[in-house]
Design a protein around this nucleic acid. Sequence first.
DNA 1: AGCTATTTGATACGATCGTATCATTAAAAA
DNA 2: TTTTTAATGATACGATCGTATCAAATAGCT
Lengths: 204, 204
Amino acid sequence: MPKRVDHEERRRQIADALIRTAATRGLHATGMREIAAEAGVSLRLVQYYFGTKEELLLAAMQHLATQFAERATTRFRQAGGAAGPGGARNVVAAVLAEALPADDERRVFSVVNTAYLALSLTDPALAIGSLVKNSDAVTGVLAEQLRRSQAAGETPTDLNPDLEALSLLAMSAGLATSVLVGQSTIDQAQAAIDYHLHRLFVAP
Amino acid sequence: MPKRVDHEERRRQIADALIRTAATRGLHATGMREIAAEAGVSLRLVQYYFGTKEELLLAAMQHLATQFAERATTRFRQAGGAAGPGGARNVVAAVLAEALPADDERRVFSVVNTAYLALSLTDPALAIGSLVKNSDAVTGVLAEQLRRSQAAGETPTDLNPDLEALSLLAMSAGLATSVLVGQSTIDQAQAAIDYHLHRLFVAP
DNA sequence: AGCTATTTGATACGATCGTATCATTAAAAA
DNA sequence: TTTTTAATGATACGATCGTATCAAATAGCT
């Protein structure tokens, strides 16, 4: 038997290289040769693991969504999880804050995610699939947490969980791009999120 | 004296063609030849009015920002303007609703605007200039209107005008992209805006 | 050692892109 | 009618891109 290599690991490595270069040179301007150089492999190998560039783009998009989901999960677990009093606030705060480009890692995500978003609006082959499904699920989670918090008496009952969830997620996404273009600072964006958290969650 | 032509008009015409094709085929995928065909002129003429493609891209971005500002102005004037009771609400509602892709015209703006946003994040030559300045000015207007409404007793004094203005604009932008990707409908996005307007403006 | 999966190398092809360069025509104002 | 500007036409150039195609070399597992 010959050399054995984890194909998924290699694909992740190459996809990471794409994401990295796309964050600095732009997604559309990132070519196969540049990706190979960034990944430290040959152009031929990129073709070996991804037959076509479209396949690579799709895999990288999926990878980006997965990474984001993992980071969000980690963050809200570190915040104490969803159980017990104030748990709902932890979940909401974690999801909203995770979308902000607070450090280099998250900035890369925001930039490339925006690039994929723009690209998918006109390229039906990309179909945005992963990203939308992700956001859709998150919206449901937020609404559910708000309802749970309302039942626990920690959130005013006169607010609409569904509309709040939708607008909160839209707001965090909008704040992220606001920071990216330099219109507002990270602190301002975080302050806006905290401001709304204060409005949504009262003392238990 | 020879034939006289309004150069600015011609430039607008070509820039419009760029915006139109960019909304359907993508900004990066839109070539000079395609723009010329869409504008109904020769490729040579596009080169005549715009020496380089970068110049054309910048002019079209400026044009896009101008069109948006004009539409927003028209809308809030039709809503009764800023004077008198409830005027602040008119201004805020107009600005927020204008950002939503409610019809084809606004959808084109949202799509191309998103494309420019993504492009400017990695292309320093574009520098996003027009768009950011626009959003920055709008944020100031919103905050000012909220303060005025607070002074008139039509808005709760315990809310923060600056943070509200920043998050409202971020929210409308986020809602716009949410509609674009099909995650939510126009009605849901408008409902979210109305929901927050109800929270911000009470009976006089 | 031998088989096999992995990886690299060196190109080359066709297409498309932005840009440049010739020349010519159309038309309106003087 | 002359003059000047607007506009078109037909290409052509160099570059870059995704992709394909030849081949060879490397290295682990049995």
